[in-house]
Design a protein around this nucleic acid. Structure first.
Lengths: 340, 340
DNA sequence: TTGAAAGCGCTAACAT
DNA sequence: ATGTTAGCGCTTTCAA
């Protein structure tokens, strides 16, 4: 046993002062005589005193912890953001509690519900559903600071950090069209997810602006996992009159598409051209390398963390919304379609 | 404002009982009249009562939170483990606080130090250093349950979950030798890291058992990031009389090697054969696919979480150590060396 | 079967 | 400049 259970009382006793004075010295507020302060500090040091944050939290009603609820911590996109948030919070002596919703609204609700009992100071959240959002509205209304990332929910008025999904998707499809493609497949995730909606809109808008009719058969919906995306890809390309190009709405689905196409013996870009939303490590390792719409992943975490920290510091501002632009990175997965 | 700040007192008042009785009814212990219990439960329900975990923690000295300190949450290996631990903890109504050490011992110490004030119930930790470990010893000695994963520290007596690093590395190098390679490069990370030591031992042992002398020039040390590994690879292969094969000790370094070799115009497996420790998504997307030593990543998290949960439940057992076997997955990145 | 009261460790209003 | 005291929300003796 070592310096476990050294409390303020012990320090106060050792320094021959009251607990109040000891607290003042330790947290440097109010009046404390110089000599006294020194004695207290010295005693605390000697005893190995460490303030009990739980006790502080009971009084203040706030634990120095922020909750992060991503769709899936295994998605490198979220892992990167988690890392950045954590680093930023650490600078402000806060900790990060991570709980994945696993893209399941019910789980998201339960998580939020259970975390509220913990007096968590605020949340950074990637809501699973763009519509089922009463639980978030509720949370925000109670005064708990919330920052939405990657996705946004209409009814909720709080800070948010997202990217230009519509523009990014549109640019991707524009690029495909510019290369002569007209039968452009879309591999998208469930429409309850905000980004799915916006990216789908970009796909549509691009087609419309080029006078290309939207063919529902070219759109395949799947869950956002490599496995599901493989199946969806195979479904899409098993039809005769298959697409000449494919746009995938996130990196996991892009990977699934890669695998699905390979399993069908379809080569990129010879048989099929491919553009994916969200850049990922793997994209530069394949041959050819994959053309993608890149998001400024490294900026999202820090910005979101700072927004939340501002709220925790008590700043009363109107909700702020950051929307980052995306960037098309042309690599080698799109070919000029001949016979045009 | 909604059901914020409903306390036990409110529930007790609403049910016309004392706080003590309300607590008994809510937590079902001690004697409570059936009718009374019902009234209390009903009142709690109606008021939307939620127990204040911080207050409970102040009494019990324990917050239902477990700390996870990986080297880097962005490493898919740790992200997967984090996910699995979290899922397991959730079943036992515990939460997971994640803080990366970023492979920095000092940061690891600070993290632990600051988290102790939080009355965290236990830790799952991948220690950055195999030697600098007093802080962990200390922690364990104070009675805080600790489970070590991926890496282990001699002086610390606690549960651990690791894999057969030596055996896995040996098998990889054996395989290279069996394919006629003798000049086998090693890309390893810093020797303070436990896994680095064991994997290096496996490399050595294999060479020795085949009567091949260890050539220090063939060993390149680098930090475990893609960028550093690229440089180290280039360094290794810039020498004349370069290796015919390369063994990399983790997936980030394998990626770095891939990139480094490509930048030098060296093709796999024609110019260089490659085997990496730790399987990763990308390994099957490259052409050729990469031969790797796979770890049972999906088993580590659940086992570690269960060990910790046992401790939290108060089980007094001798420290348990699980060491999982590894498995060589032969794909296409190794070629039979001619002229042998 | 229930209630009163103490106390977990800390802070802050109030008094001195 | 310092001490006294009350109380954050909860659990748990102890007494009734």
């Amino acid at each position: 046993m070592t310096q476990k259970g050294i409390t303020l009382k012990d320090v106060a006793a050792a320094a021959n002062v009251s607990r109040a004075t000891a607290a003042r010295a330790l947290n440097s507020y109010g009046y404390v005589g110089d000599g006294t302060a020194l004695r207290v500090l010295e005693a605390a040091e000697r005893l190995g005193y460490r303030a009990n944050l739980v006790a502080q939290a009971l009084r203040s009603g706030q634990l120095p912890i922020v909750g992060f609820i991503p769709g899936d911590i295994q998605n490198p996109f979220f892992a990167r953001i988690a890392h950045d948030i954590e680093a930023e919070l650490r600078r402000h002596r806060h900790n990060l509690l991570i709980a994945s919703s696993e893209e399941n609204v019910e789980q998201e609700k339960e998580l939020l519900e259970s975390l509220r009992s913990l007096s968590i100071r605020g949340f950074i959240l990637a809501p699973t559903s763009a519509t089922d959002s009463q639980h978030i509205v509720q949370l925000a209304r109670e005064g708990t600071p919330v920052v939405l990332i990657d996705r946004v929910v209409k009814e909720v008025h709080c800070d948010s950090v997202i990217v230009d999904n519509e523009g990014g998707a549109r640019e991707a499809v524009d690029y495909l069209v510019a290369n002569g493609h007209e039968r452009i497949g879309l591999l998208r995730d469930e429409s309850r997810i905000f980004t799915a909606q916006e990216r789908f809109a970009g796909y549509q808008n691009s087609l419309v602006s080029h006078g290309i009719a939207l063919d529902p058969w070219l759109v395949s919906v799947s869950r956002s996992t490599v496995e599901h995306a493989i199946e969806a890809t195979i479904r899409l390309f098993s039809r005769r009159d298959r697409p000449t190009a494919l746009f995938t709405v996130d990196s996991l689905m892009t990977q699934g598409a890669l695998l699905g196409l390979r399993s069908m013996g379809l080569s990129i870009p010879h048989d099929v051209s491919l553009v994916g939303f969200d850049d990922f490590n793997l994209a530069t390792f394949t041959d050819p390398q994959i053309t993608v719409v890149a998001q400024p992943t490294s900026e999202i975490g820090p910005v979101a963390a700072k927004m939340l920290l501002d709220r925790l510091a008590g700043k009363k501002l109107a909700p702020r919304h950051t929307r980052f632009p995306t960037r098309l990175i042309v690599r080698g997965s799109v070919s000029q379609l001949h016979g045009r």
